Amino acid sequence: MKIYKILIASIILMVSISAYSFELTSSDIKQGEDLSNIFEFNGFGCNGDNISPMLAWKNIPEGTKYFAITLYDPDAPSGSGWWHWQVINIPKNILYFARGTGNSDQTKIPNGAMQMRNDYGIYGFGGACPPIGDTKHRYQFTVYALPEKLDMAKDSSAALVGFMLNANAIASSTIEALYQRD
């Protein structure tokens, strides 16, 4: 009986470890550190380069068929945060987005993936743009491992896309960077 308890505990531990090993990395952004101006939006009073950062993910959970990437600012003074970027249905063989992949010209997004409309109203990356004088905002870059393709209309609201990602993800991993305009 004792051996079965040890075996069950080992299986639970392996499942727990594999669920937490999915990892988002970047050479452009770091956990808890400030974003560079190149990742600032160009518009709405901001004058950055509006370039999406390099992102890579590893330790893919079993059952993953697709990925999604989001950038969300929970500190935006909108009452509901601000969705800066959402890319869904990234094929499972894609494990890396080079810097600039999210640009709105759509030429660098992998075949089959879709950039959804962000809260700026564009289909692509929309960089940081907190109000002048606000405290530092948190910018959450998240990759999701998905078991199936998301069947979403291109004009779905960002909130609906966020809901579907959270409802269907096998796992996710986030890097939270900071940004402030003086």
Results as ranks from 00 to 15, higher is better:
L150A: 06
S104Q: 14
V161N: 05
I90H: 10
G63T: 06
D155A: 13
F125H: 09
G102M: 13
Y139M: 07
G133V: 04
Q106D: 12
A159D: 11
M116V: 00
I132H: 01
E40S: 14
I69F: 13
A158C: 05
G102A: 06
I88D: 06
H84W: 07
E33K: 09
L160N: 08
W82N: 09
P147R: 02
K58V: 01
D151I: 05
I38R: 09
A113D: 08
Q106A: 07
D119G: 10
L160V: 10
M152V: 05
I38A: 03
L71A: 12
F39D: 02
Y72P: 05
G112Q: 14
F39N: 15
E148G: 01
A158N: 06
Y72K: 14
I60S: 07
M116P: 00
K92P: 01
I94M: 04
N37I: 11
K58G: 02
N37L: 10
I90F: 07
V143D: 03
M54E: 15
N42E: 11
S78Q: 02
G102P: 15
I122G: 04
N103A: 09
L35K: 11
A98G: 13
A76S: 14
P77C: 01
T142V: 10
V161K: 08
K136F: 00
T64H: 08
A113M: 09
N47C: 01
N103D: 11
G32C: 00
A153K: 12
E62G: 09
K65A: 14
G127E: 11
K92I: 04
N50C: 07
V143Q: 00
Y72Q: 14
N47M: 04
P74A: 13
G100A: 12
A76D: 06
I132G: 00
G81N: 02
R117N: 15
D155Q: 12
T70D: 10
I90E: 03
R99F: 04
Y66F: 15
G32M: 03
I88F: 05
Q115N: 10
D34A: 15
L55M: 08
L95K: 14
D155E: 12
Q106W: 03
W83C: 03
G133A: 09
Y144T: 11
G100M: 12
P77D: 09
S80Q: 03
I90G: 03
Q86T: 02
D49I: 06
T107R: 11
G121T: 08
A68W: 12
Q115M: 14
